[in-house]
């Protein structure tokens, strides 16, 4: 059972209060992209064993989307932040590096 802090409410929200939104920081491929790139944007997801970024919506609370940085192997949660960003904030990256030395953000 996951417990994530909603960055808007400040509430430690239980997983059952939230609605999952899949992988975060997926960059849209525009009209000029190739068919392969568009297919990858639509269907290909990382599914890593380790550090992962996920979209969640506080569906039974404030209704806002946020992103959770967590580890799919250890279930450790590094932090949450509002979804209106295209990369993890520096504080989250630092929190991840403290636990996973040498980790690099790959867009």
């Amino acid at each position: 059972m996951l417990i994530l802090e909603c960055p808007f409410c400040g509430i430690m929200a239980d997983e059952t209060e939230l609605a999952p939104g899949g992988e975060a920081h997926v960059r849209r491929v525009g009209p000029e992209g190739s068919d392969e790139a568009f297919e990858a944007y639509l269907f290909m997801r990382r599914n890593p064993c380790g550090v992962h970024f996920e979209l969640w919506r506080h569906a039974h609370g404030c209704g806002r989307w946020f992103i959770a940085a967590r580890n799919t192997l250890t279930l450790e949660v590094y932090g949450t932040y509002p979804a209106q960003t295209d990369r993890p904030p520096a504080a989250i990256v630092r929190a991840i590096r403290r636990r996973v030395p040498g980790w690099e953000w790959q867009p």
Partner: peptide, 10 residues
């Protein structure tokens, strides 16, 4: 003021 889930509903 707490918005949450009770049973299956908000």
């Amino acid at each position: 003021f707490r918005r949450s889930r009770l049973g299956q509903v908000a």
